[in-house]
Simulated scan of single mutants.
Amino acid sequence: MKRNILLALLTLGMIACGASTALAAEVPPLVSTKWVAEKLDTLKTPGQTKIRLVEVGAKYGEGHIPGAVQVKFPSEVFDPETDHMVVGLPEIERVLKSLGVTPGTHIVLYDGDGQPHQVSRFYWTLKYWNVERVSLMDGGKTLWEKENRPLTKDVPNVKRMNFEVKYPPNTKIRAMYSPHIVNALATGDPVILDCRAEKFFKGEVFSVDKWVRTGHLPGALNVFSMASVNGDREFKSKEELQKMYSEKGITPDKKIIAYCDTGVLASHAWFVLNDLLGYKNVSVYDGSMREYANRFDTPMEPGTVYEKFPKTPIQKLEGKQ
């Protein structure tokens, strides 16, 4: 009798250990369209939670990969009560429950709008909230369609699951104005990476629906995030990516804070540096220019204020000096 009980306990222990090992098994940050195509039968199986394919974007209804569900961009990617900041715990749990995933599900995200940085933002959001079993499909729907792979307008019937997100979030990958940006400006460490196109970095254009001062943070280095992908929206080789960043002084030995307008291009840079190139100390300034450039007590280069914007008290004071 005792022997049977011991064997039963041993068996249960082995099952639990196997389940834990399977759950902890790492998934690659990037999968190919071919990899996804080979999993279509699984993806289309009702009730399965092994793999969940997720289109991030606003064009899901125009046609999506069979078996895919949708995360709407930007409404389900940003906290609706903030100016494009990361979603809070209740909201990310609501989104994950609606996707029908469990902690053991391999979540595969792909870009549905031809904007790969948008899907990178949701990838970063999941990592921030400690969801580890997540990958991006390289090339997104742009490449999938170019390869003449199937699309559908059928929406899969996915059962809501009770997904409990681990708290606290991974704050190491999220930078704030204070203390992180303030400290970087004062000391030069971490390195500040501007992920926008050069014309924005140099202050040559305005985007007044986002910010009213143009230019960049003092001392920032500029590498445009979208230079990391080719015309098919596939990521360039690791050698090309490493060269692109290293040539501008963005090297693995440095701590780096990436920013852009809304934290989207910055999340794309974070994915490349952290998950493709293996950098260890990269974070995203979540507020980015929507926060920084709409303040008038922060240094900018050149920091030109949009000409139609009313004079602030600080500007009036400066005019009297």
Rank of each mutant, 00 (worst) to 15 (best):
N4K: 14
L6I: 11
L12C: 09
G13D: 15
M14H: 14
C17E: 10
A22H: 10
L23D: 14
V27A: 07
V31Y: 02
T33W: 06
E38L: 01
L40W: 11
L40Y: 07
T45W: 12
T45S: 15
I51S: 08
I51F: 06
R52Y: 09
E55C: 13
Y60N: 15
H64Y: 02
I65D: 04
I65T: 01
P66M: 07
G67H: 03
V71Y: 04
P74G: 12
V77L: 09
D83T: 09
G88A: 04
E91V: 13
S98C: 06
S98N: 14
S98R: 08
L99M: 04
P103A: 02
L109P: 00
D111P: 13
Q115D: 11
P116A: 14
P116I: 02
Q118S: 11
V119K: 07
R121T: 07
E132P: 14
E132M: 07
R133Q: 06
R133V: 09
S135L: 02
D138R: 06
G139N: 03
T142L: 04
E145Q: 10
E145G: 01
E147K: 06
E147N: 07
K153G: 14
M161N: 07
E164I: 01
K166V: 02
R174N: 05
Y177M: 03
Y177G: 13
S178T: 15
S178V: 10
P179H: 11
L185I: 03
T187C: 00
P190D: 01
I192Q: 01
C195R: 03
K202I: 05
V205T: 02
D209T: 10
K210R: 09
V212L: 01
H216Y: 08
L217F: 08
A220Y: 00
N222P: 05
F224P: 15
A227F: 06
S228D: 14
V229H: 10
N230Q: 11
G231R: 01
E239D: 01
E240D: 09
L241N: 08
K243D: 12
K243V: 11
Y245S: 04
Y245P: 04
Y245W: 12
S246Y: 06
G249Q: 04
D253E: 04
I256H: 04
A258N: 00
D261L: 04
T262P: 10
T262F: 01
V264L: 10
S267C: 13
H268A: 03
W270G: 00
F271T: 00
L276Y: 02
L276D: 05
L277N: 13
L277E: 05
D286K: 03
M289C: 10
Y292D: 02
Y292E: 05
A293N: 10
R295Q: 06
Y306D: 11
E307W: 05
E307Q: 15
E307A: 07
K311S: 15
P313G: 04
L317H: 13
